[in-house]
């Protein structure tokens, strides 16, 4: 999948700059896929795609 398409899909599921994210669950095999809470929504996705999201830790206001 082209990077621009992946970017659009991630945004449509709420992954935009400034949103709080938290990893909630991991799968049994290789910890994949993962369940991530972004703002108030929980999204399940594979690590491969989650790698496209840049996260800074401890940026709590």
């Amino acid at each position: 999948m082209p990077a621009t398409e992946l970017e659009r899909r991630l945004i449509e599921l709420g992954f935009v700059e400034g949103a709080d994210v938290e990893v909630l669950h991991q799968g049994l095999f290789g910890g994949d896929p993962i369940a991530v809470r972004v703002a108030h929504t929980t999204i399940g996705l594979r690590r491969r795609e989650a790698m496209a999201i840049l996260v800074s830790v401890g940026a709590e206001p």
């Binding site: 999948m1 599921l13 929980t42 594979r46």
Partner: peptide, 12 residues
Amino acid sequence: KPGEPFMLELPD
């Protein structure tokens, strides 16, 4: 062919 991503909302 590479696999497609899996992305899915887990609703309450």
